[in-house]
Design a protein around this nucleic acid. Structure first.
Lengths: 139, 139
DNA sequence: TATTATATTAGAGTTACTATCAGTCAAGTA
DNA sequence: TACTTGACTGATAGTAACTCTAATATAATA
């Protein structure tokens, strides 16, 4: 059993956000002790991790709540939950692709600046200066 | 020269967001025609794309503004701009890694539900049912 | 000439936190 | 017994980055 602090440390989700999520109905099975303190079980930790995963892929809280509610409803909703996961996975895959493009662009920019710096120091009248002049345009 | 609509279509950034970014000072060189309509040049399009790239990697608008301002200031800021791009690239690389973990988790979940569905339909008293019972816990 | 399309602006609304405050409660320590 | 610590509650305000709405203007088209 884990306190909210331990869950925060284990998952990297702030205590604030965990309470916010709890209030949003994301952890319906978390028990309290006699002092009203939340006691997260290993399974509850699993819920935290899946919520965290869905959020990181950009699923909005309303949709996460829907998924949680389906889980609570039991076996009859397995198909729908499967579809949600499949769609989310596809979304994550597209994000990976997109992020790869951004990484490529940043690598290109890095090279661009690296050349600029190298040539600026060594040689002030080489062809790179054409680029230099256009710097404000090309960023 | 492109209208805001054309830029939106070319880049996938909404007209709304483009105006918001413009207002934030991200496109200082965009000219207007006699009717006060924005006319994006090919170079301006380049600015849109780099801003889009930085946003997609999660760089906050305040930092983007800083980068834009450095660009305007000219050659003396090349080193600092280079550092920003390098740091951003590193950030993007870390995001890729993290997203890969989320993708792995979603793939695992997909398999989990797939097995559940397959076994539920074919055989109601196999070992998978243990998992089924724990579904609400394991999500 | 009337309508439609596209553009502009200011400003309100939204999401998902994030932070702060005020106050309660219980457990452990000096 | 007083004090500190950690957790809880609720309310409220602030923030980032959009996102949407409304009011208005111009230009092209029927």
């Amino acid at each position: 059993m884990y306190t909210i602090k331990e869950v925060s440390e284990k998952t990297g989700v702030s205590e604030h956000t965990l309470r916010f999520w709890a209030k949003s109905g994301f952890f319906p099975f978390v028990k309290r002790n006699q002092n009203n303190i939340r006691q997260f079980s290993e399974d509850d930790l699993g819920w935290v991790r899946i919520v965290q995963c869905l959020r990181k892929v950009g699923i909005e809280n309303k949709s996460i709540k829907r998924y949680i509610d389906l889980c609570i409803m039991g076996d009859s909703t397995i198909q729908e939950r499967y579809e949600i996961i499949k769609t989310t996975k596809e979304k994550a895959r597209k994000q990976m692709e997109d992020l790869k493009h951004q990484l490529d662009m940043l690598e290109y920019k890095e090279q661009f600046y690296q050349n600029l710096i190298k040539n600026n120091l060594k040689d002030s009248w080489n062809p790179m200066n054409k680029m230099k002049e256009n710097l404000n345009c090309a960023i």
